[in-house]
Design a protein around this nucleic acid. Sequence first.
DNA 1: ACTCTAGGTTCCGTAAGGGAACCCCACTTG
DNA 2: CAAGTGGGGTTCCCTTACGGAACCTAGAGT
Lengths: 149, 149
Amino acid sequence: MQRTRFGEMACSIARTLDVIGEPWSPLILRDVWAGVRRFDHIQADLGISRKVLTERLNHLVEQGVLERLPYDARPRYEYHLTAKGADLVEMLMVMARWGDRWLAGEAGPPVLYRHHACGQIGHVDPRCSHCGEPMHADDVDLLPGPGSA
Amino acid sequence: MQRTRFGEMACSIARTLDVIGEPWSPLILRDVWAGVRRFDHIQADLGISRKVLTERLNHLVEQGVLERLPYDARPRYEYHLTAKGADLVEMLMVMARWGDRWLAGEAGPPVLYRHHACGQIGHVDPRCSHCGEPMHADDVDLLPGPGSA
DNA sequence: ACTCTAGGTTCCGTAAGGGAACCCCACTTG
DNA sequence: CAAGTGGGGTTCCCTTACGGAACCTAGAGT
């Protein structure tokens, strides 16, 4: 037996899960995005086991989502988002938005997002790349694409 | 010991992961969204173990993301997205978009999304709810919100 | 009465996560 | 110059959770 790999499926959601779908990985990305970049800091912030953190960081670096950069003459390293990793942040923002809407309760959202362009507090709003109108569950049809084999 | 629960963290991403972050859950939601709604069909489509599928479906129903509806006089059931669950589809679309961009390779995307409003093939594009301009990793500052206790 | 089917449940063996201890290296301090 | 410190891991053991296959059950059809 071994845990099922999703990467072979002809599905971009499954393939994405193969990169960032393991437990803790999205929270590690959130930390790096938020500026918590060092092994011990991430470990303390999340309360994750050091063993699993090592595995996850290695996997994310292998997948090109994070890069490991020295920050000192001594062997000290920080993890940073690559372009590929920064592009995942929109997924994190959508997840955060959903949690804010459906799970935050009385207390309200734990984190607010201030948008540079307008300077206001806002949240992420998914729109069609073609016409700019909203793009939610019922607004699309799914069709087989070129890679559907 | 037990697997760490994320729900207690003051983080909407962690809380969202507590609902849909277990292995297979996003793929189950994808199936239901795409019209694969019955136990045996989901099981066959994903190749997931029946035991784990049972656990995941129960959890998603408990969390109010799916509902279990009879479709026959016999004890036969289908799973459908609730409003709370349909709202998760935008997360799936963002994940699919990332996989299409970074993982699809030569073959191209396995699935295309046709937007009802404009009738064109498009993809999801995250924008600021306030000003409508793009909202990516570097376009926001994170600030503590009311629920940040 | 027998079979079929959807929708699970049970059981067992293996793999992955949690926790704590340990290790290595490059300084720093006494 | 020996001892300490702190970042960044690795190793070990134990428990939980997954995968796979077999089994169970209610209702319908024949």
